[in-house]
Computed example of a mutant assay.
Amino acid sequence: MNMKTIMNKNFAGKKVLLRVDFDIPLTTNDTCLAEPRRKRQTIISDDLRIRASLPTIEYLLKSGAAKIILLAHLGRPKGKFVPAYTLWPIANRLSELLKLKAKFSSPKDEYQISEKIVLLENTRFNPGEEKNDPKYAKKLARLGDSPHGEAGIFVNDAFATCHRAHASTEGITHFLPSYAGLQLEKEVNELSKLLNPARPFVCILGGAKVSEKIKVIENLAQKTDQFLLSGVMANTFLKALGKDVKDSAVADDVLDKAKKLYLELKGKIILPEDLIFGNFEGKQMLLDNSPKDIEKFGNIIMEAKTIFWNGNIGKSEIKPFDKGTRAIAKILARATKKGVITVVAGGDTTGFVDKIGLANKMSYISMAGGAALEFLAGKKLPGIKTLL
């Protein structure tokens, strides 16, 4: 895919609006409620996406950019200010990663990270962002104007948002010269390899987003040797085939499609067989794959030459239901060492792999979830189309 990229472009003296992906998990330390003297703290659970933005920021600085204005969103505040989604904790972490001294403790319209780097507050606090309002897009674009009226440059480095036509991803490109950043370019290049993979090609699809992942199966069916399903994906196919999944989470709206697809692909879709139910909040549910099924999946993985993994195996955010996801991550790490191409995508999955120290043991860690799925499903992403 031939995109306009930032390589060998002239940024000297220019203001650059850089769209980054800072939609990361945050947790709050509420121990202060029991101890009023303690200050409430917001903790970044996983800074993988912030770290991924650094190469493009550093490249623009080295290329002589006069100012970098960072655009980012966090969560789904639905067009209004929501304290939990303010970006000041992220601004602090970015400052630390860039070895700067800026420090913030409350929301601001913008966060001055350094003389040349500014992070604007959450773009989704403005109702025009998700509506792709041209007025809001133009307002953002004008931030790049020089004192002499010369327009700035827009760089999109947030592949994870490219499946949405929003003002800060698609709308702004109608007002400024626009290019792909290093991370976005890498995402497209690496995911494109999965459209013509070395065989055998195995897709591991867990978690939810069942409708989107079914479209991936449909688009990659002729290029994929086996689909290993877990989580809500597996539950849905199991129920469609008449299996009793008790109170397990299921996408009931696609049961007919799931059954039809399973029968059409004649053995390509592999489901858990040794079903073990656990009690969660008073309900009997499938919460993880059994050791027997993990072993079965592992044997298939080790015979592959290319692997794509999106979606955790079980309810991995709660122990001991993280065992299946942890085991699959370790198997993929061994496969990578053996020379297998391994691509991991989706916030929950990449976050888990990074947390257990195996991110650098994979061939590629994608920052995207829904965008990666839509890309592999063959859809034209609005945020990419404007960069071609």
Rank of each mutant, 00 (worst) to 15 (best):
N132Y: 00
G144K: 00
A165D: 12
E185C: 14
E190W: 11
L191M: 10
D225M: 14
E170Y: 15
V202C: 08
S178I: 04
E185S: 15
N126M: 12
A141G: 11
S211I: 13
L184D: 06
G128S: 07
A141R: 00
E121I: 03
L184W: 08
G171C: 05
P127I: 05
S106H: 13
T161M: 11
E115V: 11
L205H: 02
Y136T: 04
K116D: 07
R124F: 02
A180Q: 11
C203I: 08
V210T: 09
G207C: 07
N189Q: 06
C203Q: 03
N132A: 04
K131W: 02
N132R: 08
E110Y: 05
L205V: 01
A167C: 08
Q183N: 14
A198Q: 13
A208V: 08
H166Q: 14
N156Y: 02
N156W: 03
R142Y: 03
E121K: 01
K131L: 09
L205C: 10
G149R: 00
L220D: 01
V118A: 01
T173K: 01
N132F: 04
T169I: 13
A151V: 13
V188M: 11
F154C: 10
I117M: 04
H148M: 14
F125P: 07
P127D: 07
P107R: 00
F154E: 07
V210Q: 13
N132P: 04
A151P: 14
P197K: 01
K209N: 02
S192H: 09
K135S: 09
D225R: 11
Y179V: 06
P200D: 12
G144Q: 00
E121P: 00
E190N: 06
S146W: 07
D157T: 06
V155A: 06
A160N: 13
L194F: 13
D109H: 08
E121H: 01
T123I: 06
E129I: 01
E115G: 10
F175L: 01
K131F: 06
A141V: 00
P177D: 09
N219H: 12
A160M: 08
E185M: 15
Y136C: 05
I204Y: 01
S105D: 09
I153K: 12
E187N: 01
F154P: 02
D109S: 08
E110S: 03
N219F: 15
I172C: 10
I172M: 06
A137R: 00
Y111F: 13
R124T: 03
G144P: 02
K193F: 09
V155R: 11
G181F: 09
L140A: 04
Y136L: 03
E110P: 13
H148T: 07
H163F: 01
E185Y: 14
E190C: 09
K108I: 11
I217R: 04
G152Q: 01
T169V: 13
Y179C: 11
I113Q: 01
L184N: 09
V202E: 02
K138A: 11
K108N: 05
L182I: 15
L205M: 12
K108H: 05
D225V: 07
